[in-house]
Each structure stands twice: as structure tokens, then as C-alpha cells.
Amino acid sequence: MGGLTWNYVLKRVGMWFLTIWLGTTIIFLIPRLAPGDPVAGVISRLTAQSGYIENSAQMIEAWRARFGLDQPWPVQYIRYVGNSLRFDLGYSLANFPSRVESMVAQALPWTVGLLLVATLISFVIGNTIGALMAWERTPGWIRNLLPTTLTFTSIPFFMLGILLIYVFAFGLRWFPASGSVGRGLTAGLNWPYIASIIHHAILPATAIVIASMGFWALGMRGMMITTAGEDYMILAQAKGLKPSRIFWLYGVRNSILPQVTALTLSLGGIVGGAVLVEYIFAYPGVGYLLYQGIVTSDYTLIQGIVFMLVFTTATFVLILDLLYPLIDPRITYERG
């Protein structure tokens, strides 16, 4: 059993840096490889709107200087990487003079709150369903019921969202159709405010949970069936252990390992938001922001969000790699 060595930690942190650096480089290169000049694009759009703009050539030059686009690529690149590492993501092109990092910072708590909770609920429910589906001792009626809960998974989740809004927001009027919190409430740790947040989050969270739990359930079912054939399951039964103990400590415990890897990856991705769900429910999260960025060709905003994504995914993978030997003793730090 290898302990956590400095050598391993350094190696993994180095990998983390490398991933983020590669990510930022790609984010930097792609818009510059695309044809066209963003400043000229904005000016020509303005020109199209107002018919004629005086000194447009000088304006382009001035703005290019303002954004540092007159510098040679290597200088731009070094400045860009430096700024990114300080989380200085620049100005939004569409909402100047708003800064990208503050726009993301406003949207992030909503997204993280909604998706973190929804993803964890989905993980727990999905894996439980999957494990029960594969467990031979599961009562027959539960086993017949479980696959029907998964049929919702095959409905695209934006359709599911629309359906939920139609039934529960417009029909039954149990939940609000859009937004993240009621108006006229004092923000802070008071019950009406928190209750309103939960009230607004239930429908989008339900859409995400129902849409994604099938993924967990099917993965878990497959793993449980594989585990059920292992020799240690036979010995566990011969030892006269209680079925519940065999189910949890032998079946689920061994089957959950690859699921945890998948969970980490999906947690890393949640800062990207669930674009369609947030759009349908007008939920002011990162996904909604990303949608707006795409619609308004707000390159700096898109870049900023993608950078955040790269950063959090890499960070979650780093955390997973450091923690994984705790849940699977066969993985040792030395091999990393």
C-alpha cells in the first residue's frame, strides 16, 4: 500500500497545470485561426445599424489597441495566459464594459447550486435503481417497476423540461415556470429567500435528474452483474452474511468504483451549466450565459466560460486522482 508521496503529488499537479495550459492555448488559438477581425466585425455591425460611422478606420485601430490586438501573437499569447491564470478574463464584447469574470461569478453560484444538487441526487437514485435491477433478491414488482422509471430517460431532457413546465407550472401552478428566485425578497440566509430558491429549482432539477439517472442506472446495472459473477460473492454467501451486507459491502461497494470516476468528470463539467435546461427555465446560470454569449457572438464571454470549464474539470480530475486510492486500495500512488 503506497502512501501519498510528494513525488506523486508533484507529478499530478504538474499534469493539472499542463492540462489547463493546453486548454488555454487552444482557446487562444481557435478564434485567431478563424477568418475575420472581431473589432472590424463589431464596427461593421454598428455601421450597418446606423448607416455611417465617422473615422471607422481610426476607431478600429483604437479598439484593436484597447484590446491589445495590435500586438504580435506571441505577446498577445503570453499576456492572455498570464491574465487567464489570474482569472482576468477580459471585457465582454457584447456587454462592454461588463467584465467576463464578474458575469461568470454572478451566474456560477446558481449553476453550481442547481447542477451539483441535481447531479448528486441523480447519482444516488440512478445507482440505486441500477443496483436493484441487477440484484437477484430484489422483489419482482420492484424489478418490473424500475425499467419504467428509466423510460423517461429516453425522452430528451429539454422536452421533459417543457412537459414539466406545462404540467406543473401552467397546469397545476405548483412551481414557477422560470427564474431562480422570487422578486422582492432580501438576499441572504433567511428562510423565505432559501425557500424561494428551492421552489424555483425543483422543476429544472427534476428535469436534469430524470434525464440523467438512466446513465447511472445502466452503468451500475452492468457493473453489478459483472460483480455478481465474482468468486468473492460466492464466498460471501457461503459465509452466511446477511443479504443486505452482501449487497452493499460486496456488490455496490465494488461496482461503484467506475461510477465514481464518471461522477467526477460530470461534476467537473457542471460549471458549463446545462445549457438547454437553463435556457428553457430562464435560469440565470452559466449555461444560460453561454447561450447568450453564442447568440451575441460574445467571443470573450465564450472563451471565459470554456476556460472555467477546463479549469474545473482538470481540478476535479486532480482531486479524484489524489482521493481514488482511498476508495480503491488496488490503485496505488506509485503507479501514477
Binding site: D231, Y232, R253, N254
Partner: peptide, 9 residues
Amino acid sequence: AMNSLNPVM
């Protein structure tokens, strides 16, 4: 013999 013990216990 090789696989009869629970690998995570």
C-alpha cells in the same frame, strides 16, 4: 483462490 476475497476490504 485469487479472487475469493473482497478486493476492497
